[in-house]
Each structure stands twice: as structure tokens, then as C-alpha cells.
Design a protein around this nucleic acid. Structure first.
Lengths: 228, 228, 228, 228
DNA sequence: GATGAATGAGTGTTCATTCAT
DNA sequence: CATGAATGAACACTCATTCAT
């Protein structure tokens, strides 16, 4: 790649540099823009391949100015992943926890997961891919959050099994399999694709139900949720 | 000729350096070692984070010597992925194609995939993670090979559906879901873990069978295959 | 999200390093210094032999800082040559174009060329030597500029011939011969040498006049010009 | 540039390497081929840009084998230049020395120089360009030879001047100018070009004669010589 | 002689990070 | 807050050279 900043001033502009402040944007807006741009870049090229000069350019800043918003590239990634996970967990809690019936709860989980993983496709993709770019301490923090999420499904599965709604040979393997299956949609889902979110949810409910042998189908009208 | 130029040459001739020579090694062995070391490194740190000096050190070479085996880091990745996929496809053909019965074939595929993705865990993991490190041309080549693999499963699924062994709502989504589920094992499988390959295969056969609603179970004695 | 991966991150986050900051310098000054240092180095050692680390040191920079001024070593050369040629052409236009009489014009050209090629000896030397270090596209751009310069002399020669001031057998060969002869001085001229610029000009005027057989000598008071 | 040796043996050929000796070529032939190929490469890309792997490939050798013929790249250049200059000087001696009359001698020199510099265009071009790639010791050796050649012309010029055939203001400058003019043809001459060697010689005789004001023309039938 | 394999020393280029202005 | 200018550390890649086979 060519150096993105490449300037050649053999003809020497002698501009005295007074700096401009943004016209009507607040710092918080800029921060949001940076976050968004970063997610897009990391999603497409990976964290290591995202260089800060380009990221700054995305939000009409020069490289140096980025550091008014982020402390370290490395730390920035961690914050990104952790905040995403916190949001995921709190959304999960809000939408699935109220439900008591194991079968209802399982399907609510499927719906929730599928919707989140299509609506926030880029962030979850990053969350899966960029773990190895974390420092050891960051890694353990992030993994802990992920475990909480996985544990949530595992608890649903065990409760339903205990209640006799389905049978499970191996809770761990089953939960991993279900999660892998559901998460897979973020690899190929396109918002403008052939299938609606609702359709996707339906299809995956059926697949999950089949996989673990849910006793009888249930129908409950649920509205697709737009996340963010 | 032109009049001689009086200015004196300030550049000294490069001092020749001491060189070493190969004791008694074969290039092919070294190549194999490089490949193996590269897979391990890419698996652990990612392709971008694998630096060639370390890779060379892994096989007791100095950096420059690597280039007797690798044309470009970038090209090396592509060759790695493509050769893995070619091997995967030819193994698939050898082991699954002979089987005619759709149900048998489906289960053979599950077994094949699971075994390959545990035995060659690192390579398949790389194959899924490092797509974005490919150049556009390399990407299309690799994706084409992957599609052939996916198409194989899709064809099994449709044939079985046509033959009435199971029902499928959406062939594409179903195949993706099944592949994602099965591929997921490469994310957490440990050779020294709690579960044997055979056990894993059994569990996933059941999950897949359930997911697509295979009419009746079948039992066929199959031996787990050690790949490479 | 996918099940968490147990493997531990071995990559440590890059330790941030101590950095320095500019005291009170202007970028334009630095650019000029780089240009000057580069010309000196290329003149003495050749473009390929000029390494950027040393160039940076010449202007009290570290290697990386050079890239705030130069996009690519290769591109830098091209810009250097082209800007020199543009300057040459515009100076030529300013100093020779106003003159109408072919003989006067020819001598003005000789004077101009000789003075420029002694005053800017290094740059023109580079301009002749480093053509082969240019990329094909750069090469055609530079050659086009050189052709304009050559064409200028050719037009003087033909006009004078048409007006009967001298006779020319072959316009192309004659112009090349004259240019080669005049340009030759940049190969051996030393500012502190035995001969003054003025003397040199006189000598070459006579040689050129003789070579093409100018009908009668002319005397016009001309002041030697210091270029840059 | 891509590494020219780039091999990728992921599929591992296990060829035991018996080496081939050339079918019917002698070592001397190979040496000549190397010299020729080197001249062509240096002429086109410059000495520094000529890499030995490519040079070896030009003569169907592998890199290592080159060292059976050349001791050092650096030394090779020096030998190339010196042997060319020795040949030039001995040819000069053979063809021009026998002539006594200053005017005849001058024209013989012009003819000789022009023919040599068109027939051996590449070598003389290299001889002018690559001086700076020589080590200091090599440089002084080569310059000494060049000086002998320059001195030869200077002596012709002074003798003719003393004998009253022409007048010279400054022997040094005049000789440089004449040499530069004549040598210039090697910059643009193409063997398949518009002008024959003979025509070129004629044109340059006239230019030189004019430049130094030779009293009267002379005509002597001379055959163009094919060098090498 | 020819070849394969290895090496040391560059060499251009990228990039996160810092800080005076 | 924004910018320009600087830096250190790394990194992929090249190349002349050596030497056992």
C-alpha cells in the first residue's frame, strides 16, 4: 500500500497553520463516528490491518487528533469488544430473562441471538475474530463475558432437559453446536438479501428444535426487533 | 569516452561476509517444516502477526533463507489455504462419494467433516479466519474451492429431501447451519480433551439428524479415521 | 457468539515507545534541505546507491520522518527530475525567447545552457544519468520534457539556417552534437576551477559557431547569470 | 520486483540432484556469454541494478555457478571496463597512429571514435556511466586509461595547432568539447536507424572541423570498419 | 563445473505513538 | 481540540557471497 499521507511539497506551500475546530459537531459525535468507522474497518480488513491514519481520515481528522479520543489502539479494541458484549448481555437479560417456560425461553433465545447477530453483524463478527489481537489481560476479561453468554444458553438447555422438554447427551457440546449454528448467520447474512430477519429466525428455531428434539412446536407471535 | 571525472569514489566496495553452508539437509524436508511451523503460528497469532523472522527461526533458518522456499508471504498464505482445500476436497471425494444412500451419505459427510475438522483443526481454522488476508484474486480462487465443498453438502441435502428421507425448508440456510455447527468443533476441540473423535462424531450425527428431521436412525459401524 | 477459545494469547501488546517532538522547525525548510541533500547524494553515489537512512541523517531526521516529505524513493526521483526540467524550461523561455535574431538567439542559447549546466551542474548531471532509474511512466514524462528542450535548439538551428546565417546538413544530428558538447561541461566543471563561467561561455560560443559555420561573429554585452 | 527464483514446493518434488554438464559448450564460450549478457544488462539497468541471479539465468546457469567465472561482482565490472579501454586504446593505436599529417590524423580520430562508439555503443556507454560504481582503486586505474585516450586527442589538437592547421583557444576545453560531441552519438545511435555509420562520420568530421576551424577540407576514401 | 541451500547485511516502507504549537 | 512533525521499532524482501554435494 502506498503511504496514505504522501505529500510532496517540492513547491513549498508556506501556509501558516491555524487549526480549525469543527463547525457544529460535538466530541461525543466524533467519538461515535470513530467507533463506527473502526468497526467497519476492522470488520473488513481485521484489527491489525486497520491503520489509525486511515481511521482518522474516515472521520475527517488527522492522525494526531485521534488520540484525543482513544488512548491506545490496543485498548480501543478491548473497549469495543467489551462494550459490545455488555450490550449483548444486557439486551439478552432484558428480552429473554422475563420468560419462564423453558421452551418459550429457548425460542426467545434463538430469536434474540439471530436478530442480534444479523442486526449487529459486524460487531459480533469482530468479537469472534479479533480475540487473538487482545492482550492477555484483555483476553480474559472478554472471555469471561462470553462465558456468561454461553452459560446462559447452557442453563436454558439444562432446565428444559430437566423439565423433560427435550433430551441432551452432552450439554457443553450441544450448546456449542447451537451457538455455532446460530452465529454462523453473521458470516453470510446480508441486510439486503433474500431472507428477512423473521424468516431467518423461523428457520433457525426449527433447526434448533430439531437438533435437540423439542417435544412439540409452539407458536407465539413475536416481532422482529431492530437493534440500534 | 567522456572526459574523466575528478571526483573520488567514496563508496567502499561491500565487504564480503562469512557465509554458512547446509550440512546435509534436504530442501523438501525444510519445506514441510516451514509449512507446519507456519500453520502453527498463523493459527495462534494470525497471518498478519506471523513474522517471517520468527518463522524462519522455527525451522532453524535465517530470514533470508526462507525465500528459497517462499516467494512472498502473501502468496504463501494463498498456497497454504488452497492446498488444504484441495486436500479436503479430494479426501471428501474419496471417502464420501462412493456412498449412494442419502442417509448413509449424509452421515458419512458428518463423520468426514467432524474428523477432518478435529484432526486438521489448525488448518481449517486458518482457512476460515484468514480469508480477509488474501488478495482479491487469491480470495476468489479460495472461495471457489469452498463453494465446491458447500455445494457437496447441499447436493446431499437435496437428494435426501427428494428421496423423502427428510424435509428441508431452505437448502442454503440449512446447509450453512449444518456446516457452521460442524465446523464449530474446530474452535474448541482439544486432542487431549474429554471427548474422543468417535464420541464427537456420534453427537453431531444426532444433532444434524435432528435438525433436518431424518426419518429413522441408522447404525453403521464406522471407524474413526486418523488424518495425517 | 462462538464458544470461547481456551488458547491463551501469547502476543504481548506492543510496548509504547518514547517519542520526540519538533522543537520549532518549519516543514518547508526541511523539504528544501532534503531536496538539496538528495541531489548531492545522487550526484555522488547515484540514485540506487543513495539510501534513505543516510539521506535522513543528512537533514537530521530519522528514517521514518522522511516519509512525511517523500511518498516513495522512486517517486521522489521523478519529482526531482521533472521539477528541474520545468525550471530549466521556464528559465530558458524567460531568457532566450525574447530574442528574435537567430544568431543572437543561438548565442543566447549557448550562454544559457552553459551557465545553467555549470551553475546547476549536479542537477543536470543527475538528469542525464538517472533516467534509467525511472519507471516507464516516469520515463516518458521526463523524456517529453527533455524533448521540448532539444526541440527548442533545433528550432533555432533551422530558423537560422532558413535565414541563411549558417548551413546545416542534418538538423537532428547537429542539435544532438551541439547539446552533447555543451552539456559535457557539467562533467568536469568545478566552480573553483581555472576558468570562469564567462570564459567558458565564450569558448563554447566559438566552438558552436565554428561547428555550424555561422557567417559572422557578433558581439553583444551579456552578463553572466547566477542561477540559484 | 518479485523474487526471480520463487519456487513453491508445497507438493514436494524429491528429485535427487545429479548435475548436468553442458552438452558441447566450453568454459570460454560461457565466459563470453556472461560478458555479453552483463554488458546488455548493465547498459539497460545499470550496474547496481543488475543482479547476479538474473545474469546467471541469461546464460542458463544457476546463481552459484556464476562464481566459477567471476570472482566478485565488483571486480567483474572493473575488468569489463578496463578490458574495453585496453581494446579501445590498442585499436586507436593501430588505426590512427600510423597517420602523420595532423589533419588526416584528426579526421582519422573522428572516424575511429565515431565508429567505435556506434559499433560498441553499449560498452562505451557503460564506461561512461558506471565509473561511480568502481572502488577507489579501480577508479584510478580506469581513469588513468581514459586520460591516455583523452591525451591522444589533445596531442593531435596541439600538433595541428602548432603546424598552423587550426587555432585553439584552450586545448583542454576544446578536447573535452570534441570528445563530448563525438561521444554523444552513443546516447542516441541505433544500428537500425536512419543514418549509416559512414554518414555519421562525415557529419561529425564537418562539425569538428568547423569547431576548431580547420583550414581546408580534405577527402580521403575510408572504409567503415566493423568492430567485433 | 553445476547446483541447492544457506547466510549477513542491508533497504525501503509502515505504523503506533508523542508532543510543541 | 486539531495539526504537523518527529521517532523507534518492526517488517518484508533483496542480494552478493559461500560451500557441501
Amino acid at each position: 500500500m502506498l503511504p496514505s499521507q504522501a505529500r510532496l511539497l517540492l513547491t513549498l506551500p508556506r501556509t501558516p497553520h491555524k487549526m480549525a475546530r469543527p463547525p457544529g459537531v460535538s466530541g461525543a459525535d466524533t467519538m461515535r463516528a470513530i467507533r463506527k468507522a473502526a468497526i467497519a474497518r476492522i470488520f473488513r480488513y481485521g484489527f491489525e490491518a486497520m491503520n489509525l491514519r486511515d481511521l482518522a481520515a474516515d472521520v475527517n481528522l488527522k492522525l494526531g487528533s485521534l488520540y484525543n479520543y482513544i488512548p491506545q489502539k490496543q485498548e480501543f479494541l478491548s473497549v469495543l469488544l467489551e462494550s459490545t458484549l455488555h450490550e449483548l448481555l444486557s439486551d439478552l437479560d432484558a428480552q429473554v430473562s422475563p420468560i419462564a417456560d423453558p421452551r418459550e425461553k429457548l425460542f426467545a433465545f434463538v430469536r434474540f441471538h439471530t436478530e442480534w447477530h444479523t442486526a449487529r453483524k459486524e460487531e459480533v463478527f469482530i468479537g469472534n475474530m479479533e480475540l487473538r489481537s487482545l492482550s492477555p489481560q484483555q483476553y480474559v476479561r472478554v472471555i469471561a463475558l462470553r462465558k456468561r453468554y454461553e452459560a446462559y444458553l447452557q442453563s436454558i438447555l439444562s432446565q428444559g432437559a430437566k423439565a423433560g422438554y427435550w433430551t441432551i447427551r452432552d450439554a457443553k457440546v450441544t450448546s456449542y453446536a447451537v451457538l455455532a449454528m446460530l452465529t454462523g448467520v453473521s458470516n453470510w447474512y446480508r441486510p439486503d438479501g433474500r431472507l428477512s430477519q423473521a424468516k431467518l429466525v423461523k428457520l433457525h428455531e426449527r433447526l434448533v428444535a430439531g437438533a435437540i428434539g423439542v417435544q412439540e412446536p409452539m407458536a407465539a407471535p413475536r416481532s422482529a426487533i431492530r437493534h440500534k
